[in-house]
Simulated assay, not measured.
Amino acid sequence: MIKLSEIYAAKEKIYDVAIKTPFTFSRFLSNDEKKVWLKCENLQTIGAYKIRGAYNKISSLSDEQKKIGVIAASAGNHAQGVAFSANYFKINANIIMPESTPLTKVENTMKLGANVILKGDNFDEAYAYAKELEKEKGYCFIHPFADNFVMAGQGTIFLEMIEDLSIIDYIIAPIGGGGLISGIASAAKQINPNIKIIGVQAKGANAMKTSFYNKKITNSKGVKTIADGIAVKNVDDICFKHILECVDEIVECDEDEIANAVLFLLEQHKMVIEGAGAISVAAIMHEKIKNLKGNIACILSGGNIDVTMLSNIIEKGLVKSYRKMQIKVTLVDKAGALLDLTKALKEAKANIIKVDYDRLSADFGDANITITIETKGKDHQELVCKTLNKYSFIFKEL
């Protein structure tokens, strides 16, 4: 475990740059048996919890180390935490980010004054290159998770939660490299050993879960997930030991479940949360953890989601929840044919939002119409289909 004294020491320092984030009750996730609370690290200074650990580490450096500068590898949030902290101390920061890092995270890191280099397909490849530069240039490496100062900084999240809610029965937190849950679990277990600590991983990046249940490090061959903040392929030995000691259970969520949670938090709680940040809520929504009772603390680790990814999640969510449908209709290519179709859709009270008219893919004398409409649920979509059948339209749902 990270010593509790180190976590309290971190708490004395981090508010130079960090804030105490809201710990909000969720009536949408709660019921008679469980009360769910959301720790909103998406509202942190840089939009994620990473500022805590990064600042705690950089503030501990010697004057000589600060003079040389720092280097880090990150999928985005740690990069911003290091850049912000380095800028605070007026020191040089070099950040290696995977080439797939969302543009918003790259731009935000650069705006904070860091030198950004895009390298590799994932975090582990970016990390390997950062370690090469560390040796070559003599920079001080700021590890995103496997560092006691970093983990102690992340552990301050628990100290804040226990100030706001004296009784916590479960803590649900995302796991990428494991620094966040190691810090939180270390603090929680030393203050109250009865608190259950549940980690959540993406199905496409679940090396820590596999290692946890095998009781030995088992790395993944590759990672693929919309939760880019926790897309870590290899398990670090330091964090693995903390997790074996302090964490009670690890579960996983697939891509659709993570996307559902992002959309749920946007619609119900009016909060923009990235995939890694929403995965703790996804675990509750999709009942990954059995027999949850009492006060449940969910860590929303960040809100730095790429707007293109958010748009895709919203679009797919609208389709899955029967609020948008796309149909392809074959019409005789003559005047008034499209009008007849729109009259039928009007009768079904479906709102048209997009129409594509294509003669080339149809037989001579016909046209294929791809039409996107807004609907009000599954029953409404069934009514649309019934109405089109009533008027003998040839169509299929896409």
Rank of each mutant, 00 (worst) to 15 (best):
S5H: 11
Y15W: 08
V17T: 10
A18T: 00
K20A: 08
T21Q: 10
F23Q: 10
K35R: 15
L43E: 05
T45D: 12
T45I: 02
T45C: 03
A48M: 00
K57E: 04
S60R: 05
E64Q: 14
H78W: 03
S85F: 03
A86L: 02
F89M: 00
A93P: 04
N94D: 07
I95P: 04
M97L: 09
S100Y: 03
V106M: 06
N108I: 06
M110C: 07
V116G: 07
I117N: 11
A126C: 11
E136A: 11
Y139P: 02
H143I: 03
D147E: 13
N148E: 14
F158G: 02
L159G: 08
D164P: 07
I168F: 01
I172A: 02
I175E: 02
G176D: 14
G178L: 08
G178H: 05
S182D: 08
I184Q: 00
A187Q: 12
N194H: 11
I197D: 08
Q201Y: 10
A202P: 03
A205M: 05
I217W: 06
I230E: 01
D237S: 15
C239G: 13
I243F: 04
D248V: 03
I250E: 12
E252W: 06
H269E: 15
H269C: 10
V272C: 08
E274G: 02
S280L: 15
A283Y: 00
H286S: 06
K290R: 13
K290L: 03
K290I: 01
I299E: 04
S311V: 01
L318Q: 13
I327W: 01
V329Y: 10
T330R: 15
G336N: 15
A337V: 01
L339Y: 10
T342A: 07
E347G: 02
S361N: 08
G365Y: 09
D366L: 11
N368G: 14
I373Q: 14
K378V: 14
E382D: 15
E397Y: 09
L398H: 05
